[in-house]
Design a protein around this nucleic acid. Structure first.
Lengths: 349, 349
DNA sequence: GGAATTGCCGGAAACGCTTCCGAATGGTTC
DNA sequence: GAACCATTCGGAAGCGTTTCCGGCAATTCC
């Protein structure tokens, strides 16, 4: 009977508590707690003594309990539309890494388009469990976000879907600049009739990238033909359709700018289906520079977004907010950069 | 001063507690708790009354506190080598979905190859915070896993790296069968000299797939030339190198079986670099059937692994274990199936 | 009509931790 | 040698839940 208790390999049934450690070390639980949290008022040898016991038993504090009493759980909620995705994956990964370094963890909450629930789900899901949240491409409206903020819940938006509201911490990419670079690249190659497969209408990323696209064309003195812009849902099949639509125009473009890699690859497939060679007959540029860009043939010229970095930035912003530090730059835009590969070339003359 | 308290939009500073709800509804906290947990012994109108207040304030229970008192946090730890990955992404996604349905959440712990830490990190990270864990492709040895199990910590292994130890819950794919199908497909097309780009040496998946590969060849009466097997690290660049090695043989293969999509795509690139057409000059088969298989040209023939399903299975197994239900089938193997696309064809005669 | 049963609810302990407060000790200072 | 300060530590109150136990009222049964 007593055997179960005298098993030294697995010292405690279930899990050791701070009290067990305190008893073993011959101190009070308060002292153990102080040691564990690196508080200053502990004598060096007491500290060492406690640490020894802690190490010997592989003890680690129960985060739930800590959260209850100190208000900090070390857990951060993170919502995103999709986990298994070449675009969101790296962001998530960057955030997870950055948090891991701070000994914090991510609680995943894929949104799965269930924005229908009565009250703002993100807040009800997280509060009390997490210290804050990172919202990637949130579906919540600016008003809903402001509501959340008024509840004093710390959060940051990464890659906003709508133009980011004032006063809300937010990290985005320099969409317009990237789109401008991409377009200028095509212009320099000699293209003048350039089609665009835009993203979903009214999304921040779509609008900003359109801005950059238009600006570059304007800079080259080209008047944009509205026929040359087709909206999409950011996904491959729609990219293929959009490309077909563009290529069926009476005066088809010699280059297509896809507003993300998915639709650009869709366009690539459309070109293939028509027997057009890329970049011989048609140049194609993507956006995001996901893993996919390197895999297709020809490799895709694309605008690199620092995805993982955006995740990391989101974390560091959030941490500052949680810790109540003054955050002077609530909004932050990370630079984008064109990566030229094999899918772009001069137009056939 | 008092204004902050009389803001009705945001009823409670910080967060409402179960006690607030109890007061508002004119019942005890015990009753509120019962309502919240769907306990039977509450009068219907009392229940409705409480629910009304709960809804009105968007209240949700503090999971940390619940965890403390009931021993269940509703959080599941999940470790995996990589988050942003065409292979692990869908698994993670499947697991997240399945948990979400049960109103549980995932706590992410990417392993990042830091297996060096003193004590088994996974156990110290999770215990007390989570109710159990899903270990995807864990680096832990069978002994370490058994140790964990002896601590009564509920966990399941998904996609084991080593042959799964006895008595540990585990979900895998039918590697051998899939590899056999793929090989037979090539044989039926008329290939007799088939190269294999295997995975990392000694991995369970590698060994099992080799088994299937060999079995199919043996079935066709073909003696395997050891030169035709090259190991890899599962990644694309190594796949390209391996393919080059195979194609440089004095009697090169007419088909290559890549043990995952990455190396198969690497082989595709190698073929392209040599000016070989696929499948004209060289047939290529992959494994896993990730998103990537559909994107490359030609589209890759690949063995489908039900990745998301594996994640979901892992969850349902784990839940059963946590709830103490009898689990008769601790090991479970999900079937794999060849998906024929454009990268395979008869050999040039 | 009293006793036993049932349905519903409240009080209170417990979960593992942090932190405030105050006590004890030993050393300084005048 | 008394008064004071700094250092180090323990006691105990709480954090928001769940759940056991017991109590009250309304039934039901003989």
């Amino acid at each position: 009977m007593a055997q179960a208790d005298t098993q030294f390999d697995v010292p405690f049934r279930g899990r050791a508590t701070i009290r067990d450690i305190a008893d073993l070390a011959g101190v009070s639980i308060a002292t153990v707690s102080r040691v564990l949290n690196d508080r200053p008022d502990v004598a060096p040898d007491t500290r060492e003594n406690v640490l020894q016991v802690v190490r010997a038993h592989g003890f680690s504090t129960n985060r739930g309990a800590r959260g209850l009493s100190s208000g900090r759980t070390g857990l951060i909620g993170l919502t995103l539309p999709l986990v298994a995705d070449a675009y969101f994956g790296p962001m998530l990964s960057g955030a997870a890494e950055a948090l891991h370094e701070r000994d914090m963890r991510i609680v995943l909450a894929p949104t799965l388009h269930e924005h229908d629930r009565e009250v703002s789900l993100l807040e009800r899901l997280m509060r009390g469990t997490t210290d804050g949240a990172i919202l990637m491409l949130p579906e919540e409206s600016a008003d809903e976000l402001r509501m959340l903020q008024r509840q004093q819940f710390p959060f940051v938006v990464v890659d906003p879907r709508e133009p980011p509201p004032e006063g809300i911490a937010c990290v985005a990419a320099m969409h317009a600049s990237g789109a401008k670079q991409a377009t200028e690249h095509l212009l320099e190659l000699g293209h003048s009739r350039i089609g665009a497969i835009a993203g979903a209408p009214r999304w921040y990323a779509t609008e900003e990238r359109l801005l950059g696209f238009r600006a570059a064309l304007a800079g080259a003195g080209i008047l944009l033909d509205p026929e040359l812009i087709v909206y999409s849902d950011w996904r491959m099949p729609r990219g293929t359709e959009a490309a077909e639509q563009l290529l069926s125009l009476s005066d088809p473009p010699t280059a297509i700018f896809g507003f993300n890699d998915n639709v650009a690859i869709g366009a690539l497939h459309a070109a293939g289906a028509r027997g057009l060679s890329v970049p011989g007959d048609l140049s194609i540029v993507g956006f995001d520079d996901t893993e996919l860009a390197m895999i297709v043939t020809p490799q895709l010229t694309s605008v690199r977004q620092p995805l993982a970095e955006m995740g990391r930035m989101g974390v560091s912003l959030l941490i500052r907010i949680i810790e109540g530090q003054r955050v002077d730059a609530l909004r932050m835009e990370l630079s984008t950069k064109l990566v030229v590969r094999a899918s772009t070339g001069p137009p056939r003359t």
